[in-house]
């Protein structure tokens, strides 16, 4: 067992964990933060994307012990204290950028990472930034529109 100290969505946690414990399982099974789901076992789907120390990561591809001392933000930590959604959350809703919603946490976290780097991306840039996140419902078009809309750009309907 190894001791880890992690701040997740603003709360500090200290736990003894097996070194092999994946960050995603730490979040889901130990902390009960089930807002971030698991969609594959090969790093392809991106459903488990969270923010670790200011960068998007696939939390299936990070050990909990690697996050020791770090700060994690999940989709559950995005809304303001008053529950107010972020621009991306609003845009995903308004643009119908989700259907079953299983990929949505990862999509939003990946899109958030993109907009931090590139506040006004082109539609092509959005598509490439989301290449590591699979959605089976939307065909991506409304996701791209939502990200563009969240960046404050005009988007057709």
């Amino acid at each position: 067992m190894t001791r880890v100290s992690v701040k997740v969505d603003g709360t500090n946690y200290e736990d003894e964990v097996e070194p092999r414990l994946l960050l995603i399982h730490y979040l889901r099974d130990r902390l009960g933060l089930t807002g971030t789901p698991v969609g594959c076992d090969t790093s392809n789907c991106g459903a488990c994307t969270v923010d670790l120390d200011g960068e998007s990561v696939k939390s299936c591809s990070v050990l909990a012990v690697q996050a020791d001392g770090g700060e994690v933000t999940t989709v559950q930590g995005l809304a303001g204290e008053d529950g107010e959604w972020t621009g991306l959350q609003r845009a995903f809703h308004e643009r119908h950028a989700l259907q079953c919603g299983y990929c949505t946490p990862g999509m939003i976290m990946a899109a958030r990472d993109l907009l931090r780097d590139n506040p006004t991306p082109t539609s092509d840039e959005v598509r490439h930034a989301l290449e590591g996140n699979l959605c089976r419902c939307t065909g991506y078009q409304n996701i791209v529109r939502a990200v563009l809309a969240a960046s404050g750009q005009e988007v057709g309907t």
Partner: peptide
């Protein structure tokens, strides 16, 4: 109409089968 379903889904307040404890 934007969907009623979305509120939980965009905030991670979901109830997937694997979430059940």
């Amino acid at each position: 109409r934007p969907r009623k379903e979305d509120a939980r889904l965009v905030t991670g307040q979901t109830n997937w089968t694997d979430n059940i404890a």
